[in-house]
């Protein structure tokens, strides 16, 4: 059977705006990925645990609350502690100035508002392990 790329789409923290995450989830589905959609207001613990149980290749985090500098790196750390080696990408309202810091913390790429979904799909296909 053909291997399918599995992506966890998750929204960490206290932010109920999931329109963007749903648009991305739908686009990834149409690109042939299996998308595990976990809903809103999750803790880093829940997200890293779901990534472990679902054995995903990619974790796509969406956040619009401004807490990305705290939450994104924590999720990366927790996944590492569980023995996971997962391509982790971020999206949402993220200032350009924060992007280098996030990349240094293990977020492979950051997609800000206005990014065409094709770009995210291409990025995943080119970089998935």
């Amino acid at each position: 059977m053909e291997k399918r790329i599995r992506v966890l789409v998750a929204k960490p923290g206290l932010d109920g705006h999931d329109r963007g995450a749903k648009v991305v989830a739908r686009a990834l589905r149409d690109a042939g990925f299996e998308v595990i959609y976990t809903g809103i207001r999750l803790t880093p613990e829940q997200i890293s645990e779901a990534a472990l149980q679902e054995d995903v290749n990619v974790v796509a985090l969406s956040l619009l609350s401004g807490a990305h500098n705290t939450l994104f790196p924590r999720i990366v750390e927790m996944m590492k502690a569980k023995g996971l080696d997962v391509l982790t990408i971020g999206g949402g309202v993220i200032p350009d100035a924060d992007i280098p810091g996030l990349k240094a913390a293990g977020i492979a790429e950051v997609f800000t508002p206005g990014t065409p979904t094709e770009k995210i799909i291409e990025y995943i296909k080119a970089n998935v392990k």
């Binding site: 399918r4 149409d30 042939g32 809903g39 613990e45």
Partner: peptide, 22 residues
């Protein structure tokens, strides 16, 4: 279900089970 067209899927059952994750 997997999409019969793209082969992709949205697996959304965990949304109702997030409390069990931990």
């Amino acid at each position: 279900p997997s999409s019969p067209f793209s082969g992709g899927a949205i697996l959304g059952d965990r949304i109702r089970m997030n409390e069990l994750t931990m």
